[in-house]
């Protein structure tokens, strides 16, 4: 009782401190997150009109004109379809690998786990642009250390370049996702397995029946971040344009937005940005809800 009686006036008295704590972040968040989003929405509602053919261009309110243009833009939807296909294949492979490696690191089967942990995580320290440049060289038939492989398979052809890029993304992010899952595994108290171990359950059995169900929240978290990352794919394909002519200027949604903005058709690009951000939001939210329902059931 006395505690609340003492605290109430305090909360008011600390108003100055609260302002010091909250205003810097709040102001920057408003300036560089909230206002840009609002501005993108505003910009996406404008259209350019001219007086006659050569008159000066004027931006006027055009309602949902740009959104209709987005929905009729085949290149944009093709790029969305491409990254969705990419995500359906790459995200499960990447998270599966991350899960297997995390389980192995956590099992008593592996020695030197500290070394392996750092070795697998090292690619995360390589910026996407640099990773793409590096793998671009490794894929190039005349430069690659694996000429036997690169002469047999053309990693940069129109059919395979998407999967070559998927490999670059996987290479960079497996270790990062593995560490998040591994941290979740470390947090499981060991008493939980002791009974299973005494009953003679194998490591495989323990992993399947005890560990994996307990790290589902970590898998959901990494899954959502991976989906966001996939829809936003930009640096890797942009770099691969130097290595392969198969990577067009509308290869991924963000490349489409970039090339649309540099036409310049800013309003259409803004509308695409809004649609992409909404699609990302809806997709990651759906994943969150679906997995929550499954774990609750």
């Amino acid at each position: 009782m006395t505690v609340t009686a003492v605290r109430r006036p305090r909360a008011v008295r600390h108003r100055g401190a609260l302002a010091v704590f909250l205003i810097p972040f709040g102001a920057l968040f408003a300036l560089f997150y909230v206002i840009p989003i609002g501005y993108a929405v505003y910009q996406s509602l404008l259209v350019v009109e001219r007086d006659g053919t050569f008159g000066p261009a004027v931006q006027v309110f055009g309602g949902l004109t740009q959104y209709i243009a987005v929905f009729e833009n085949e290149a944009f939807w093709a790029s969305i379809g491409r990254v969705l296909l990419f995500g359906v294949v790459q995200v499960p492979i990447m998270l599966g690998l991350a899960l297997i490696l995390a389980l192995l690191l956590d099992s008593p089967l592996v020695r030197g786990s500290k070394f392996f942990r750092l070795a697998f995580f090292a690619p995360y320290a390589v910026p996407s642009v640099i990773a793409a440049i590096m793998w671009g060289f490794l894929y190039s038939p005349n430069l690659s250390p694996f000429t036997g492989v690169t002469q047999a398979v053309d990693f940069l052809s129109a059919e395979s370049v998407l999967w070559s890029i998927a490999n670059v993304v996987t290479w960079v992010y497996v270790g990062y996702n593995m560490l998040i899952i591994y941290s979740a595994l470390l947090a499981i108290p060991s008493e939980i397995y002791e009974a299973a171990r005494l009953d003679g359950a194998s490591q495989l059995r323990i992993a399947w029946s005890i560990k994996i169900p307990l790290v589902v929240p970590a898998l959901v978290l990494t899954g959502i971040f991976s989906i966001i990352g996939t829809l936003q794919l930009l640096a890797e394909p942009q770099v691969f344009q130097s290595f392969s002519s198969a990577v067009t200027s509308t290869f991924t949604p963000n490349l489409t937005i970039y090339s649309t903005a540099s036409i310049p058709n800013i309003s259409l690009a803004a509308a695409m940005s809004v649609v992409l951000a909404l699609a990302t939001f809806v997709l990651s939210f759906t994943v969150l809800k679906l997995t929550q329902r499954r774990t609750a059931a």
Partner: peptide, 17 residues
């Protein structure tokens, strides 16, 4: 909610601003 907004989605509007 800001965590879920990808940095690339902000780049173009930031440029305009």
């Amino acid at each position: 909610g800001g965590v879920l907004v990808p940095a690339t989605a902000l780049a173009l509007p930031l440029f305009l601003l």
